[in-house]
Amino acid sequence: MKKPIDEIFPNPPEDLDPHALIEERVPKHVAVIMDGNGRWAKKRLLNRLNGHKAGVEAVRELIRAANDVGVECLTIYSFSTENWKRPEEEVTGLMDLFAKTMLAEVDGLHEEHVVVCPMGDLSALPQDTQDAFMKAWEKTKDNDGMKLFVAVNYGSRKEICDAVNEIVMEAIEQHEETYTVPLVTEELLSKHLYVSGIPDPDLLIRTSGEMRLSNFLLWQIAYSEFYCTDTLWPDFDRYEFLRALLDYQSRNRRFGAVS
């Protein structure tokens, strides 16, 4: 870990012992479905966009904590391909929030050596939002720290379809006369996903008590450990993250083998 454990978790609840966290067993890749912003706002008689703004603070807290404990890759589900069905005012507000947040946070992330990697179909986003994500990528791409994958306009089924189509198109371009599509193996398809060459998530966290995958990383989480909490996303702080890590470390990961 880059920092002393007491500095990372300075005021733990009585039922949590940060020193129980084993550095060698910190998951290399953590993926998070951040759910509950709307319900958090509703409980406080606020509009949904206020909930999303509060959720940004939780994202900031998570990134710092994950980076500090030595997570190598962190993937956060920010906006799905299905989220376009939400009210236009909410979607517009989210896109503006994404752009402003990226521009405001990129310098701090850069100082922490974090690599910001947008993941999804950015072409459908407003130009200002696209530009903000690409600026973050360009500024941080050569960093050597934690990789932060921001899944935006992301859908796993589309990702898999895009990967297969890319394999087919490459085969057509390389074999114009004979047109031979190669045998599609797990390795070949993995190379054509939006992001390749990184470990699959060890741990998938979902907040707000929901028990579904919501079209997120369907290929990559084949053997991920799941951790679900009733905590709404804006209330998910570094100590809730610590609970998830400790729970993960209590698991016996067998990958299909006999225990």
Rank of each mutant, 00 (worst) to 15 (best):
L94T: 08
V106P: 01
F149C: 04
E138Q: 14
V106K: 02
D131P: 00
M146D: 01
N143I: 05
L103N: 15
P87E: 14
L148E: 03
L125M: 14
A104R: 07
L97C: 03
E138H: 14
R157A: 09
T129I: 08
M146P: 08
G120W: 00
A136Q: 08
V168T: 09
A124V: 13
I167P: 07
E89D: 15
K158Y: 11
N153F: 01
W137A: 04
A104V: 02
L94Q: 11
M95F: 05
L122G: 03
T140A: 04
F98N: 04
G145Y: 09
N153R: 00
K139Y: 09
S123R: 13
E111M: 10
A104K: 08
D107Q: 11
V106H: 01
M146L: 07
V114S: 05
S123C: 11
K139E: 11
C117Q: 14
M119D: 03
E159Q: 08
D142W: 10
T129R: 06
L97K: 00
A99W: 05
L94I: 10
V168R: 02
L125C: 12
D131S: 13
L125H: 06
E159H: 04
F149W: 00
V115K: 01
N153M: 05
E166Q: 12
E112L: 12
I167F: 10
L97F: 06
G93C: 06
E166M: 09
E88P: 07
V116L: 13
K147S: 11
E90Q: 13
N153V: 01
P118I: 12
E166A: 14
D96R: 00
M146W: 10
M134D: 10
E88R: 15
M146N: 04
A151K: 01
V168I: 14
E166V: 00
C161H: 12
M146G: 03
L97M: 07
D144P: 05
M119E: 05
P118N: 13
D96N: 05
G108Q: 04
F149S: 03
A151Q: 01
G120H: 03
K139T: 09
R157M: 05
K100V: 13
M134E: 13
L94E: 14
M95R: 02
A99C: 06
A124K: 13
Y154Q: 09
V168C: 09
D144Q: 13
V152E: 08
Y154A: 10
K100Y: 10
A163T: 04
E138G: 00
Y154H: 07
T92R: 07
D162I: 07
K141R: 15
V150W: 07
G120E: 06
H110P: 01
C161M: 15
H113E: 15
M134N: 12
A124Y: 00
D142H: 14
A136R: 03
V116Y: 06
E111Y: 04
D96P: 00
D121V: 07
E112A: 14
S156C: 09
S156I: 05
A104E: 15
D128G: 00
G145E: 05
A104P: 07
